[in-house]
Amino acid sequence: MKIIHVVSGMDPKAGGISQAIRTMIGGLADQGIYSEVVSVGSEMGDPETDDPFPIHFTGPGKSAWQFSTGLQSWLNKNLVHYDAVLVHGLWQYHTYAVYQAINAINGPRPKVYVMPHGMLDPWFQQAKGREMKSLRNWLIWKLIEHRIIHIADGIFFTCETERKLARQTFSPYFPKSEMVVGLGVHRPPPYTREMQEAFNKACNMNNRGYLLFLGRIDEKKGVNLLVDAYLSLKSEGYDLPPLVIAGPGMDTPFGISIKKQALYDQEIYFPGMLSGPAKWGAFYGCEAFLLPSHQENFGIAVVEAMACGRPVLISDQVNIWREIENNGGGLVEKDTSDGVRNLLVNWLSLSQTERAQMSSKARKAFLGDFSVEKAAGKLGKVLV
């Protein structure tokens, strides 16, 4: 079987979709399903993106919508050569380009599936400060986006929570089929001393225990709440380990404000984006992983931490929180100041034995629910 994945960008620094696609393709390949990607943008020369599958770049897109005549031309010529089309993400031109290309086919056409990756979550329409973006999305939905949803043979979701939330956001919403196919991550490489050394070099931690946030430095992720709660508890005398906040976005206005917020605490570290051995060293070396996000469809970094046997302290806006809570692999609270404070206080209250048990349960939860083998198996059964 031959699949074409259609996306608006494959730069790993742009967010989780490109990473999810890479993981998904690897899992499908293990089942004998062949994948290619077509993406708006220019070819990347970064060794980090030296992928083992073909990526057809169709040139830079225009405007925030990423309009691309190159993408439309490529789809018109090549779509019929694939058994299935998997459209990743919404709100940009690539979805409409697929809709147009499919409608232009005379005769048998490939199956079409859409994976929103959380982009139908009502949070994006309701969050404070997103009024103009929510209006833009509403207009795009009414004029364009509902078309690809309604002609698709199926809509794929990463978890049951995402599927339920998608029904609450826009009207008309009448997909032919809704399927929870999951999303997994590859098993991490075994721990090596090189990983620890790479992380120590990036962060200058000197082999100390620490709490870890690893992700895009963005208000949506609740980073400001995390820093607030950390500083507040330390001022009250709580004995907290150092806090590492790693990821891209420190040069944005929000990132700069976070660094100013933490300016007078010598135990908050900002190593920037970590990759390769340094990233895995960060996961393996932390006491627990934190993600107090206001909206998180899946949370790849959450699952990577669990794969390394690390407990996760998350908000109930991370859509896989129920699975994690049920498996005992972490702690869950509200995405509020009090909620983040409770996460830290409750973690500190655990004994070393309880923390070790939670670590073991986190690893088991990964193997049982979130491994790439399990997720790709579900997806493969739907596609074949």
Rank of each mutant, 00 (worst) to 15 (best):
C203A: 15
L135M: 15
D83N: 13
P172E: 05
M1H: 05
G26H: 06
E48T: 09
Q72V: 15
W65R: 04
W123Y: 15
N224W: 02
L350C: 08
G380D: 04
W347I: 03
N106F: 00
V112D: 05
I105T: 04
G15K: 08
D338R: 14
V332I: 14
R310G: 01
T353W: 09
G154C: 09
A101P: 06
I55S: 09
N297A: 06
S39T: 14
K381V: 00
S39A: 13
H56L: 06
I256F: 03
G27L: 07
L135H: 13
S68C: 05
A246M: 07
D239H: 13
P172M: 05
D239F: 12
Y82T: 07
D83C: 01
S349N: 10
E197T: 10
D228W: 08
W91E: 00
P292M: 02
H88Q: 12
S351T: 14
V181R: 12
I105F: 01
S360K: 15
G380V: 08
I33H: 01
I149F: 07
M10N: 09
G129S: 13
H117S: 07
I258M: 15
T95N: 11
E178N: 10
F157Q: 06
I320Q: 04
L28H: 06
F270Q: 11
S235C: 07
R322Q: 15
A84T: 12
K133P: 01
R363C: 12
I320Y: 04
A20N: 01
A229M: 08
L212W: 02
Q31N: 07
H186G: 14
A20I: 00
G272S: 03
F53D: 03
L71M: 13
G380S: 04
D11M: 10
Y191G: 08
K260F: 02
G255I: 04
S63L: 11
I3S: 07
V7S: 05
F170T: 04
M273I: 06
V318N: 06
N342Y: 08
A29D: 07
H88V: 01
I300Q: 11
G330H: 03
P54E: 11
M306P: 00
D251Y: 05
N137R: 14
E219S: 12
G70I: 05
F254S: 11
A246L: 03
D316V: 00
R167V: 09
G255M: 05
M306V: 08
P54A: 05
V112G: 04
K361Q: 09
F289E: 02
F156L: 15
F370N: 10
A229F: 06
K279M: 14
K334D: 15
D83T: 01
I33M: 09
A365T: 12
C203K: 07
S315N: 04
K176G: 12
M119H: 08
M115Y: 12
K381Y: 00
D51S: 07
L290G: 00
L290K: 00
F67E: 12
V6W: 09
P12D: 12
T23I: 06
W91H: 01
K334A: 15
V223R: 11
L274G: 08
H94F: 03
P110M: 08
G118K: 00
P116N: 06
T336Y: 13
K374M: 14
I268H: 01
F67N: 07
A101S: 14
E36Y: 06
P271A: 09
L71K: 10
V80W: 11
S293M: 09
L367P: 01
L343I: 03
K201C: 02
L343P: 03
A101W: 02
V114L: 13
K334W: 11
Y238E: 11
N204I: 09
D50K: 08
